[in-house]
């Protein structure tokens, strides 16, 4: 089953979505990320795992410049991230992000949450933005909630709205930072279903998650981080059945019981 899914999700051979070379980051004296190197092709789906504090969030937040790196290069969709604000804005428009705690705008309705950025950032006419929003709300299966406020929705519904909100900007790449770890177990599936669907449609995705079922089903690479370094990366089957590194084995034995 996983195989058929894999096949339909074509990975580009030539188009590079993200390229990170010799990248390091410090908080004061603390070296959070050490010499990170990897390349993500268009259409690739990467799952990042690792113990708490290993720098997973920091890494993906560097990709849309929510955090600044101090050394090395990050190139996203052909734009290198430097202090050039224009480039940063360009990258952010192409990269969607989903947070652990949803971060919906509580003072706006679901529809307004979805149309705000398209209207103000992309200058889409309101009517068109609403049509697009409705389309994505249908895709995440909650069109009937359009006029409610985020606080009136369940956690799972809020996270699906957050995904739809990112999609409304029509991004090339989606970043997920533990999208299901603030959710009750019965809501995790509804969010993962949406993410699987997104992967099948060919979205380039980087997901920090400990949902190993999801990793097996959609990822074409799993990266394992520890103490600010990527210490191992492999295809999911290999990664789970034949981990190389001692820390990886230890980590897997903990999360797979």
């Amino acid at each position: 089953m996983a195989d058929t899914a894999q096949k339909s999700m074509a990975v580009s051979e030539t188009e590079v979505a993200i390229e990170i070379t010799n990248m390091s980051k410090w908080y004061g004296d603390f070296n959070v990320l050490r010499d990170i190197n990897f390349k993500v092709m268009k259409g690739e789906r990467i799952v990042i795992a690792g113990p708490s504090g290993s720098g997973k969030s920091t890494l993906i937040r560097c990709i849309n410049r929510l955090e600044e790196h101090q050394k090395g290069h990050i190139v996203v969709g052909g734009n290198e991230l430097t202090s050039d604000l224009k480039k940063i804005d360009e990258v952010r428009r192409e990269v969607g992000m989903v947070f652990q705690h949803f971060n919906l705008f509580p003072h706006l309705t679901i529809m307004q949450n979805l149309t705000l950025a398209p209207i103000w950032v992309r200058k889409t006419p309101k009517k068109e933005a609403e049509e697009v929003a409705m389309h994505y709300l249908e895709r995440v299966k909650i069109p009937e909630q359009a006029d409610k406020y985020p606080g009136q929705l369940s956690g799972g519904q809020q996270q699906r709205v957050a995904i739809a909100r990112s999609l409304c900007m029509n991004p090339e790449i989606m970043l997920f930072d533990e999208p299901t770890s603030a959710l009750d177990p019965e809501m995790i599936k509804e969010v993962l279903d949406v993410m699987v669907k997104l992967a099948e449609d060919g979205m380039t995705m980087l997901c920090v998650t400990h949902e190993m079922g999801f990793a097996r089903q959609v990822a074409n690479r799993v990266m394992f981080m520890d103490q600010g370094q990527i210490i191992e990366q492999n295809e999911p089957e290999e990664f789970f059945s034949n981990p190389q590194h001692e820390r990886t084995k230890e980590f897997l034995s903990q999360i797979l019981h």
């Binding site: 410049r65 992000m97 705008f105 950025a117 950032v121």
Partner: peptide
Amino acid sequence: GQYEAADALG
């Protein structure tokens, strides 16, 4: 998170 969401949306 509100600032970050706004930033992430460009």
